[in-house]
Structure formats: structure tokens, C-alpha cells
């Protein structure tokens, strides 16, 4: 039989351990942020955002092309990943128990766990090789395909939590099934789906491996989707493995910009979620 004091003592230790675990869980992010700011902030200036990369030895180079390139890649990926992902999610929530739904659900979980480099090779095989050149389109398609399972599953989850009573209310008013799904169920879940989409975008914004042999990277200014395009993760990779100190500094600054983009997107997702639990959607 444990005494009262020993029970209190044990409880204290356990609570202490959970506190410790909670702090340790956030520690990597805090360390990375602190390190990035320490190393990267000094190279960060307005010219970093407006200038093109400069040859080694010249000062004042920037990553304007990579920042724009990353935004373009995110755009292409979203055009591919969001409609397919949201459409798939709607299917899964509407036709929950059909054999096709079970298969799709399982396969999107598999796709979700697929190493991103495999996605890159796949996009190279089917988009780069037939075209004969690297392109932003191939890079966007590779990361867009990675978005699909993420968006599909969050969309399904968000639609699932829409109360059946709302669906029944619309049907009982004489709404056709498709319009009920679209204008009541989807609209009620919209904020949640938007959050899922933003999280997926944040997730793929930093992907490097699928871009290595699809978007390929570009030292020059290019916004054409048919040309190889620069991207922040690729630029960071190139600069980080170079032997030059100036490029290393630029890589740190690039990493800081990249993580800021991801943080901003994640924060936007939080704000969208909060408005969802506020008053009405409208």
C-alpha cells in the first residue's frame, strides 16, 4: 500500500516529466529558429529579395529568382493538388463505405508516406524525359502530387464533422443531394478545408528532393513554366554544399526566408481555423 506522500511524490514526478516532454517537443524548432536568425539575419537585406544570385566574390547577391520560383511552384502545385485533393475528399466523405472509397483511402495513406525523392523520380520519368527538358511544370506536378493525399484526408475529416442534422435540414428543404453537398456541407467545412490546404502548402513549400530533377533550379531569372526554375530549397542546397563562405551565408539567409514563408502560411491556417470556431461562417 502506497502512502499518501509517496503518491503525491510520484504524481509530481510524472507531471514534471510531461512538462519536460512538452518543452523538448518545441525545443528543435526554437533552436533552429534561433540558429537561423543568428546565422542568416546578417545576410538578409532588401537586396536579398530584389537581386539575382551573383558569382562568388561579388557582394550583394540575392535570391529574387528563387523566391519567385518557389511561389510559382507552390501555385502550380496548388492548381494540381487542391482540386484533385478536395474532390477526392468529397468523394470519400459522401461515399464512405464503398469499396472504391476504402481503396482510395488506403492508397492515399500510402501515397502520403511515399518518400518525396520517389515522387521526383516518377515526375522525371513521365514529365521531364518525354519533354526532353526540366521545367517548372514538372516540379510543380511532383510537389502537387504530394499535396493530393494530404488535402484528400483533411478534406474528408473536415466534411465528416459537419453534423448530419445540417445535411438533413438541406435535404428536407428540397435541396438536391449534389447541391446539399456543395452549398451546405462543403461551405460549412470550408474553413477547415482551407486550413488543411494551407498546411499542405506549408508542407510542400520546403520540399527539395522532388525538385532536384524536375524543376532543377536556375541561376537566371525565369518565370516560364516550361523552363527550369529556381526554388529556395534548391538554391539553399546548392549554396550549402558549395565551398564558399559568402554562399554559405546566403544559404542561411535563404533558409530563414523559407522558414518564414512556412511560418506565415501556418499562422494563416491558425487564423482561418479560429474564425471557424467564432460566430457564423458568413
Amino acid at each position: 500500500m502506497r502512502t499518501r506522500t509517496s503518491r503525491h511524490w510520484l504524481s509530481g514526478v510524472m507531471i514534471g516529466l510531461t512538462y519536460l516532454a512538452a518543452i523538448l517537443a518545441t525545443l528543435p524548432l526554437l533552436l533552429i529558429l534561433a540558429h537561423l536568425i543568428g546565422k542568416g539575419a546578417s545576410s538578409l537585406s532588401l537586396s536579398f529579395f530584389t537581386n539575382m544570385p551573383k558569382p562568388v566574390g561579388e557582394t550583394g547577391g540575392g535570391m529574387a529568382n528563387a523566391i519567385v520560383g518557389t511561389l510559382i511552384l507552390i501555385g502550380i502545385a496548388s492548381l494540381i493538388g487542391l482540386p484533385i485533393g478536395i474532390g477526392g475528399g468529397i468523394y470519400l466523405s459522401e461515399k464512405r463505405r464503398t469499396p472504391l472509397a476504402h481503396t482510395v483511402r488506403f492508397l492515399s495513406d500510402v501515397l502520403n508516406g511515399l518518400p518525396s525523392i520517389v515522387m521526383g523520380i516518377f515526375a522525371w520519368e513521365f514529365l521531364v524525359r518525354p519533354a526532353g527538358h526540366f521545367s517548372a511544370l514538372a516540379g510543380g506536378a511532383a510537389v502537387g502530387a504530394m499535396m493530393i493525399p494530404l488535402v484528400t484526408r483533411t478534406t474528408e475529416e473536415m466534411l465528416r464533422v459537419v453534423p448530419t442534422s445540417l445535411r438533413e435540414a438541406a435535404l428536407a428543404l428540397g435541396y438536391p443531394k449534389w447541391r446539399t453537398s456543395l452549398s451546405v456541407v462543403l461551405r460549412t467545412a470550408l474553413a477547415g478545408i482551407a486550413t488543411g490546404a494551407l498546411v499542405a502548402v506549408a508542407r510542400i513549400a520546403g520540399e527539395t528532393a522532388p525538385l532536384l530533377f524536375t524543376a532543377f533550379g536556375n541561376q537566371f531569372w525565369s518565370t516560364s513554366v516550361h523552363e527550369p526554375i529556381a526554388a529556395l530549397p534548391l538554391q539553399i542546397f546548392t549554396y550549402a554544399i558549395s565551398p564558399y563562405d559568402e554562399w554559405h551565408a546566403q544559404a542561411w539567409a535563404g533558409a530563414l526566408v523559407l522558414i518564414t514563408i512556412v511560418l506565415v502560411i501556418s499562422l494563416a491556417a491558425r487564423v482561418v481555423t479560429r474564425s471557424r470556431f467564432g460566430a457564423a461562417v458568413d
Binding site: 453534423p163 445540417l166 451546405v184
Partner: peptide, 9 residues
Amino acid sequence: FQRWNPFPK
């Protein structure tokens, strides 16, 4: 219905 279900509008 038993449980009132206005749309969030």
C-alpha cells in the same frame, strides 16, 4: 427536427 439545425448563416 428534434435538434434545431439552422445553417451557420
